[in-house]
């Protein structure tokens, strides 16, 4: 598959930007004519990834979140979300449902939701260096709803 269009965003790791990030990604993805549900899935997955950067990677300290959104010639949206935060010690464990290092009403479902609401999820992390999460979402659109 080949990238046909791409945008890059850099945002401060502030919780007030969570809404902007998911809406910006969803808005760019809308060129593939997704269904309401597909748009909602993308927003949810992006929101989880961005929240992880703020809550875990930077632990509420200052930092930047780097987002690249591309659409491919086979109608896939690829969202890459990168931070330069503390990294994840054990990615396999972090991806387990209900595992969380954040107290305070965190559900521990972030990665499970990203997996469930996308077609593929890649997580690359290095302790002390940061984490890159890549979300792949194939847009089937309205025509394939009946199949």
């Amino acid at each position: 598959m080949k990238t046909v269009n791409e945008i890059k965003l850099t945002v401060d790791a502030k919780s007030v930007n969570e809404a902007y990030c998911r809406v910006a990604v969803a808005s760019f993805a809308s060129q593939l004519d997704p269904t309401v549900e597909e748009i909602s899935d993308i927003k949810t997955a992006v929101s989880e990834a961005v929240t992880n950067c703020i809550v875990h990677a930077y632990r509420a300290k200052k930092g930047k979140i780097y987002i690249t959104v591309s659409v491919t010639d086979d109608s896939t949206v690829i969202v890459k979300i990168r931070d330069n935060g503390i990294g994840i010690q054990d990615v396999k464990k972090a991806r387990e449902p209900l595992f969380t290092t954040g107290g305070d009403d965190r559900s521990g479902l972030g990665f499970s939701v990203m997996e469930c609401f996308s077609d593929k999820l890649r997580v690359y992390s290095k302790e002390g260096r940061g984490t890159t999460v890549t979300i792949y979402k194939k847009i089937r659109g309205k025509c394939d709803d009946d199949s």
Binding site: T44, T51, D105, S107, L109, V113
Partner: peptide, 13 residues
């Protein structure tokens, strides 16, 4: 109109 896993945490809490 939008809810992520923070909403699940909110209900659980």
């Amino acid at each position: 109109h939008f809810m992520d896993s923070s909403g699940v945490g909110l209900v659980m809490g």
